[in-house]
Amino acid sequence: MRIFLNDDAHEVDAATLAAALDALGFAGRKIATAVNGRFVAAPARPSTKLADGDRIEVVAPMQGG
């Protein structure tokens, strides 16, 4: 299945957001996520099903003013 993570295309074999994040190297990381413009809280990632073409946003802490 082809999904987009922060605009980059990836082929993943993952049914859920949690599985896709694990497959793409985010396991255990301090991140927040959204799918197709909707915020997905961490506890909801394992139950969030992915479909071909879904757009995932992953953000992490950074410096700010």
Partner: peptide, 30 residues
Amino acid sequence: TVSLRREGGAGRAGQSFWSFIQSLGLRVLP
């Protein structure tokens, strides 16, 4: 004050910044 930005699977900047912020023990205003 702090912020958030996209991070890829290989990136580690956000994780190290998060550890740094935690080590300060201060309140954060995102």
